[in-house]
Amino acid sequence: MAGSEPVVTPGSRYGDLLPRILVGIALIALALGAVWLGGIAFALLAVVVVLLIYAEWCAMHRVGRAVRMVGMFALAGAVLFTHLDYAAYALMLVGIAAAVLFFLASIAAWGLLYAALPGIALVWLRAEPLGAQLVIWTLVIVWATDIAAYFSGRTIGGPKIAPRISPSKTWAGLGGGMIAAALAAWLLARQFGLDLNPVFAAALGALLAVAAQVGDFFESHLKRRAGVKDSGNILPGHGGVMDRLDGVMPVSVLVAIAIGLTR
């Protein structure tokens, strides 16, 4: 059915595993390399990613070229403003652009916010003390959630969470993802010297795993409404950039808000 994820059968349970692994390794290497370099390298990667996400959003919702370009200029400017330590101006730019887009095509305005806020959050986090560690901690929690949910969901199976939105997502997958995220959050917080109580770090990881899954469901909902299987086809075995980063979107924003509140 268009807009839904394929129903897993025993013979095809791991049929897409090899391309997912190969592309996943390449993406992880690219992300970690950019995070390690920081500075303009990380900012430029963030610009490329948010522009691709916005382009996929606009393609799904058939947004016109002129409206699309307005959003793209605003996105690139907002991320670069954040890199230059003007995060407040970046948020103002996004707010103004979203207001303009709302009157041109309201769905484009929501897409702008969807793409911009995680990009701003990650670039802002990278510039913080222990910024590389914070960004890696954030990304690894999402990766651990995705990997564990994928394997535990397909191995254990069981009741679906929301079959009308995402037919392949199970409660077993969510549980496996939460456990893996909790362990990853605790281990990396200890390894990176982050000032987090071990129990709190694990609990936070589990909660962020839920947020990552919510991001996944939200993107699945968007695809079902648009009548498409994937947000794009740029990533073999994964689909589009939105498909790969749907969990990062809410988690990065939540982590940035939490760090901002403790400053």
Rank of each mutant, 00 (worst) to 15 (best):
L27E: 03
I28D: 03
I28G: 12
L30I: 11
L32A: 13
L32F: 10
L32N: 05
G33H: 02
G33N: 04
A34W: 01
V35A: 12
V35F: 05
L37A: 13
L37W: 06
G38K: 10
I40Y: 04
I40W: 10
A41G: 04
A41D: 01
F42Y: 14
V48H: 01
V48Y: 01
V49K: 10
V49N: 07
L51A: 12
A55I: 03
W57S: 15
W57H: 13
M60P: 15
H61S: 12
V63F: 00
G64H: 01
G64N: 05
R65I: 00
R68Q: 06
V70M: 08
V70C: 11
M72Y: 00
M72R: 12
L75R: 12
H83E: 08
A87K: 10
A88L: 11
L91Q: 02
L91R: 01
V94K: 04
A97Q: 08
V100E: 03
F103L: 12
A105S: 12
A105G: 02
A105R: 13
S106L: 01
S106V: 04
I107H: 04
I107S: 12
A108G: 11
A109F: 02
A109L: 08
A109K: 07
Y114N: 12
L117S: 06
I120S: 06
A121I: 03
A121H: 06
L122H: 06
L125Y: 04
A127M: 12
E128T: 13
P129K: 15
G131E: 03
G131D: 04
L134G: 06
L134K: 14
I136F: 06
I136H: 02
W137A: 11
W137F: 14
W137R: 13
T138L: 13
T138K: 06
V140L: 14
I141P: 15
T145G: 14
F151M: 08
S152W: 00
S152K: 02
G153V: 03
